[in-house]
Design a protein around this nucleic acid. Structure first.
Lengths: 190, 190
DNA sequence: CGCGACGTTGATTTGCCTCAACGATTGTGG
DNA sequence: CCACAATCGTTGAGGCAAATCAACGTCGCG
């Protein structure tokens, strides 16, 4: 391909893809542009797509019984974001996914992706590797949530997600870390 | 196969496997029997195998700077257990894996498994699906650790892991939930 | 300009931890 | 087979980390 599409470039950074396969993959995805604060998914909706972020910044969160938001994940360029549970079980989404900046995402429908796994076996491998890493990261976050203090978690976040820290408001970081904005403010004061 | 091996039966519950493929898969795995309290993996060792539990009960945990144990996972029949981070990055294990009962596990070496993914594509699919589910479960646990009280987490554990609750001592459940044995005892008192 | 969104500060409360002590049960060696 | 130790669960007192609540300052934007 003369011009290397961001989605294809990302996939090729993990697995090999022939030009022909790249073309097949790209045709399966649809582009979606989002304005700031626009929702990509809301609670109760079906979650039938896998989503890749070409540009921008998004968050996924859920509402508890008191109506309070709890952020599950941030996503920026070259990341994936989804309500994977709803996607896999084909149940209504429990998560909201919202753009925090004007964003561009590429989506593929579950059924089309299943076909793609057969047409292009490298895609099955690609997703296995991506999810493997995400799983390890998730377990790491678990160990932190269970066994570290808020301060330790915040330091870890600063080290590993500097780029995100600069793009999202502080109260959302607090929510992601599972603490109150007031407490995060107190931690930062030194 | 006249006699259906537990490992193959488990894989076939997720993906299709021809008799020939089943044979190939089985030959790649090695059986390992463990006595109670025996370690399958210790901190600092290389973690080069994927591990399937045919029988028994195991736990994975790490030690913090104070030398206290923190349980990351329990595993029983038909589950998988590993230090996946160490496995993937080929770095020394940070986790211990220990049998809580006499156990039988089946292990496959990383290199052999990579070959298997090519010989038997259904295995690549199998692992993708398994890890996908594990990832969703891990995220669920995250949301609980961050946004629910110890009591809520304990109730959830009782509902979803009744079989494990009956097989492991209470202080290990406390560790898994990220609370002290004393506090779990207090929660149970009603 | 005025309003809403965001961050900060301090007082009070609460969930959970720490530490110490004490039964009950299990298992083990004499 | 018994005595003793180790393991496990429980109880209670005191302390600390983080939440809650209320108030206030600042900034950006319609």
């Amino acid at each position: 391909m003369a011009f290397l599409h961001p989605l294809i470039a990302h996939i090729q950074s993990v697995v090999d893809l022939s030009e022909e396969e790249g073309k097949t993959v790209l045709e399966a995805y649809r582009k979606k542009e989002l304005r700031k604060k626009e929702f990509l998914l809301q609670e109760g909706e079906p979650s039938n797509h896998m989503r890749f972020i070409e540009k921008g910044c998004l968050r996924s969160f859920f509402l508890d019984e008191d109506g309070k938001e709890h952020i599950q994940q941030f996503g920026i360029e070259d990341w994936w974001i989804n309500d994977l549970y709803a996607y896999l079980t084909q149940s209504p989404a429990r998560l909201y996914i919202q753009a925090l900046e004007p964003s561009i995402v590429w989506q593929v429908h579950r059924e089309r992706l299943e076909e793609l796994f057969i047409q292009v076996p490298a895609m099955e491998r690609f997703y296995r590797l991506k999810i493997q890493r995400a799983y390890v990261a998730s377990q790491e976050r678990n160990m932190q949530a269970l066994y570290q203090t808020a301060e330790e978690r915040y330091f870890h976040f600063r080290e590993h997600y500097r780029s995100i820290e600069q793009r999202v408001p502080q109260y959302m970081i607090a929510s992601f870390l599972g603490i109150t904005p007031e407490h995060l403010s107190a931690i930062r004061k030194k």
